[in-house]
Simulated scan of single mutants.
Amino acid sequence: MAASRFRPCIDLHNGVVKQIVGGTLTNDADELKTNFVADKTPHEFAKLYKDNGLTGGHVIKLGAGNDDAARSAIEAWNDGLHVGGGITDENAGEWIAMGAQKVIVTSFLFPDAKFSLERLQSISRAVGKDRLVVDVSCRRRDQRWIVAMNKWQTLTDMEVTRDTLAMLSEYCSEFLIHAADVEGLCNGIDEELVQRLGEWVSIPTTYAGGAKHKDDLRLVSSLSNGKVDLTYGSALDIFGGEKVKFADLVEWNTEIDRN
């Protein structure tokens, strides 16, 4: 059986690598809850990932003022990182030309919070399906997961289901899914969502949100039958956490490669 892999991340806020409680990322600075602000630059984090052979990591620009920081990460690992945040059909090609392996899109697909197939087709044509990741990060409402945009503050008209993921996968090569309600809390993953994703997805998919122990990789692998990869944030020692060691996650991936 396939096994879930650890995928690294670089979350950028005001040009600095940070770990933020996802649900607090509003336009009101007083509401923002930050778990970690890095001393290391985005370039240094990207080089760390490259040196450890960690592929498919995502660089997310959380708001304005992060373009230079994202470029510095790409320079450290050309054709090794996915870049998201403010991506449109007009600038997506520029990020690929700068060295991003793939671009990640969310808000552009939802003008006025309503899904636009035309926009999805446009950006897919602009960079090619193989270079496009669709971010269907979501918030839970009762027993459903609704795609959220605008720093996860605005709910769209799209529910995460087998059918919507199948439709989206016709135009992209990967999914990135933050469970925004548990992002940054280190209180555990959304197990039901991970299990559903394992049942629904047909392309590589990365889940982020709530991971707090190295054994969460084993849990995600079991719940999703190895079809969903996992990103760690605030629990990770390189982000100031005390619960998960970066070296252990690297070793997990190394063991998968050996087998």
Rank of each mutant, 00 (worst) to 15 (best):
V201C: 03
K102H: 13
K40G: 03
V201H: 04
W200H: 08
V17R: 06
A100G: 05
D79A: 11
K33C: 01
H213E: 13
A3N: 06
L193N: 10
I20P: 03
A208H: 03
D216K: 00
V134A: 05
D67F: 05
S4D: 02
R258S: 13
N91S: 11
V127S: 01
E192I: 07
V83C: 01
G80F: 04
T164C: 07
A100N: 05
I177T: 11
P204Y: 03
P204K: 09
Y207I: 02
K47Q: 15
R141E: 15
D190G: 11
A92S: 01
I104T: 12
N187R: 13
G241C: 11
S234F: 10
V37P: 03
H178N: 15
L62K: 11
L48W: 04
I123C: 00
V228S: 04
D30Y: 05
G53H: 09
E174K: 01
R139Q: 12
L81Q: 07
R196A: 12
K50P: 00
F110Q: 09
S222Q: 13
T26Y: 04
I60F: 07
H178P: 02
D79G: 11
K33D: 09
I20R: 06
E242G: 14
V133E: 00
D163M: 13
N253P: 02
H13R: 12
D89T: 02
A73V: 09
G99F: 10
N225L: 04
G233Q: 06
S72Q: 14
K114W: 02
P111R: 08
G210R: 04
D190A: 14
G84C: 07
V134T: 09
N91D: 12
D39H: 09
V127R: 01
P204H: 06
G99E: 05
I177K: 06
L155I: 06
D89R: 03
G86E: 12
F6V: 00
F246D: 10
G86P: 03
A126R: 01
V17M: 08
V37E: 15
L132F: 00
A64S: 07
Q121H: 10
R140M: 12
G233E: 04
E251F: 02
F6I: 01
G240S: 12
F115A: 05
E183D: 15
V194D: 03
L81S: 10
M167T: 11
G80R: 09
Q101H: 08
D257W: 06
D181N: 13
V127N: 00
A166F: 08
N78E: 11
N91G: 08
D257Y: 08
I104L: 07
N225F: 08
C172T: 00
A235I: 05
T106Y: 07
Y49G: 10
G65Y: 12
A113N: 15
A69N: 10
E159H: 03
F115L: 02
G57Y: 02
R7A: 14
A126W: 00
K18Y: 05
V127L: 01
D163I: 10
Q195C: 09
C186T: 15
Y207H: 11
F239L: 12
V147T: 03
I10M: 09
T106C: 10
I256W: 01
N253L: 03
H213C: 11
T55W: 08
R119G: 06
H213Y: 13
D67Q: 11
Y232N: 06
E191N: 12
V17I: 08
K18Q: 13
D89V: 03
R144S: 15
A166M: 08
F239H: 14
